[in-house]
């Protein structure tokens, strides 16, 4: 997934999938439900089967997002960390093995118990479960449709519009940061994010210029919006209606039932 990347409409492939046609708000509720399910179940086979199915579905077609290598690296390191912390810290159950075996009268050290392994896998499963289901959501949801869908649910359009505005300006502000960063680099400043000093410099020397430019931008946008009488009326006519279909509701209820059955059986 490219960092700070919001796809514009032209980035969306022409094909449709069940997740893409689903109402964004209902879809958001559905993934929240699945995330909660991941935090409730303790059956590793069911948990990892579900993650596997979601991953297969995610990779089934090419989506506008692609998970970047550094992000995958972070996810793997974080998962490993969760696993190791549980494996080292939990000493209930039978001893499975020693991480450092006995070598010539020294050791063994760091015993790993079965419950430590179980908990490690459980929490890694939770983490990956939430991440993968989030990928499916953001891959199949146009964020602006999500904001519009919120408005149709009687969320005040001024607030829902803030979400659209924030998402709309993410790539713009990101480009601006890059411009400032390039300007600093041409002056000989190290702003390479792969080094500690570079990242620190990036934060330090980018912060004030970007705040200043954002404040100017805020002034322009506010005057422009007020000039168009934004917020004058209680209701706002949407450019595009996001339908709330019965089939979406049925799908959501079915999902609730399936998860409930998976919990009790």
């Amino acid at each position: 997934m490219k960092d700070n990347y919001i796809p514009v409409n032209s980035d969306w492939p022409s094909f449709t999938t069940p997740t893409r046609t689903m109402n964004p708000v209902i879809k958001f509720l559905a993934i929240t439900l699945i995330a909660i399910y991941y935090f409730i179940i303790t059956d590793l086979i069911r948990m990892y089967s579900l993650i596997f199915i979601v991953l297969i579905y995610y990779n089934f077609k090419s989506f506008p997002y692609q998970v970047s290598k550094p992000k995958y690296r972070f996810l793997i390191i974080f998962s490993l960390l969760i696993f190791l912390v549980q494996a080292f810290a939990n000493n209930q159950g039978k001893l499975v093995f020693y991480l450092i075996p006995r070598i010539i009268e020294v050791g063994p050290f760091i015993p790993i118990h079965e419950n430590g392994l179980f908990l490690g896998l459980l929490l890694v499963g939770r983490f990956w479960g939430v991440i993968t289901i989030s990928w499916v959501f953001i891959d199949s949801t146009n964020p602006f449709d999500f904001a519009q869908s919120l408005t149709q649910l009687k969320v005040p359009y001024r607030l829902a519009y803030s979400l659209s505005l924030a998402l709309r300006f993410t790539p713009v502000l990101n480009n601006e940061i890059m411009t400032i960063r390039n300007a600093q680099q041409t002056r000989g400043l190290n702003t390479n994010p792969n080094s500690l000093k570079g990242t620190f410099n990036l934060l330090k020397f980018t912060l004030f210029p970007i705040i200043s430019s954002t404040l100017s931008r805020i002034k322009d946008i506010t005057l422009s919006m007020e000039g168009r009488a934004f917020g004058l009326y209680v209701d706002r006519t949407p450019l595009k209606e996001i339908p709330f279909r019965i089939s979406d509701m049925m799908l959501y209820l079915m999902l609730m039932m399936v998860l409930w059955l998976l919990l009790i059986i």
Binding site: R158, Y161, S162, L165, A166, I218, I221, E226, G231
Partner: peptide, 13 residues
Amino acid sequence: TSDLVIIALFSSL
């Protein structure tokens, strides 16, 4: 309106 724009843009940042 200015509050909303401040919240939106700085949240984005």
